[in-house]
Design a protein around this nucleic acid. Structure first.
Lengths: 191, 191
DNA sequence: GTCTATAGAGTGATAGAC
DNA sequence: GTCTATCACTCTATAGAC
């Protein structure tokens, strides 16, 4: 793999593990197996490299989520597929995590891909929930946009609960709680 | 105010704004108006001071949430009071934020007050939701513990959405979405 | 209790040789 | 493109005077 490529991937990993503030150029170079000069030749310092890494992480996340949300099944099933997909729960969300970093929030350039990704996810979920509402799959009074925000928030918050307790159980619990609230009313005759 | 007191409060603020990794002893001293020697006289370095600050922040949060959850009203009303309380949404949660800090997670001492606070909140919410279930206030099939986890996660994730977009709107939207999912079925004759 | 001095390591970057 | 050298600064802490 090329040196710029290795630098970007090392930065993606470190931003996920330690955030922007907690990641030093030196650590990036060591993980990438690249020298000082090499890094500064290919990128405009730590901010430039971080921008490349964050943009790529954001794009990858859109790809992963998009494939599940565009899959087969009812609205409920596609949302469940997204919520129940395999995750490195204890590592947290590589995109959402960045919102807690003061220097990411202070930089419009770094925050933009984060904002766009989360906003895209919320919008895509809202479309699917609206489909479900149109099909009579969910309670009629619901606002698709608000429920979509609650879905995204449950995932992001689930990471917080899991990392606080050091166990994935709390994430799974929150997801189950949300799914049970969202569940299509059991068709008459089931219970 | 005493010097130790000022140091603790300055640390609470900086941990909220920048996390543990992003906060230096020097910054704490400057905000507290205390010298180097003063800080190291009263506390065992950055970790000791952080532990004092985190413990206090956690206790304050339990107080705030406890007062709302112990208040008057139905189960739904008390949960809504908690969800809709005034918050510095764009600053994030002073407790939950710490779960994204690698050094907090690496330290059992620092993580403990965070874990205990979030766990206490989830437990208290579960009790209230169970009360609501016993009163027939919510859909009978729900698991109190899971719904409680979803409530906490929605709040924690709401902060992520708000900080990503730079606006409090997304937080409010997620909370409304959750409340609409949780809402007692409208009594017959309302619409 | 508070102050200044000092210290070794790390940070983020530039310069210039190869 | 990559390397080493160098830089001014910050980080976290200790020592010892006052």
């Amino acid at each position: 793999m090329s040196t710029p490529e290795r630098l970007i991937e090392a930065t993606q990993e470190l931003l996920w593990e330690r955030g922007y503030v907690g990641t030093s150029p030196k650590a990036i170079q060591q993980r990438a197996g690249a020298g000082q000069g090499s890094m500064y030749h290919h990128f405009a310092g730590k901010p430039g490299l971080a921008l490349a890494a964050v943009s790529r992480t954001a794009a990858e996340m859109r790809g992963t989520a998009g494939r599940l949300l565009d899959g087969p099944g009812s609205a409920y099933e596609r949302i469940a597929a997204y919520l129940l997909r395999e995750r490195d729960v204890l590592k947290g969300c590589p995109v959402g995590r960045l919102t807690m970093d003061p220097e990411v929030i202070a930089s419009d350039a770094l925050r933009a891909p984060v904002d766009e990704t989360i906003d895209w996810l919320r919008g895509r979920l809202a479309e699917i929930i609206q489909e479900g509402l149109d099909q009579g799959e969910f309670s009629p009074g619901l606002a698709a946009g608000e429920v979509a925000a609650a879905v995204v928030a449950t995932v992001q918050g689930g990471y917080v609960l899991a990392r606080a307790s050091g166990s994935t159980a709390a994430f799974d619990s929150a997801v189950q709680g949300l799914l049970s609230l969202l569940a299509p009313a059991a068709p008459a005759g089931l219970a």
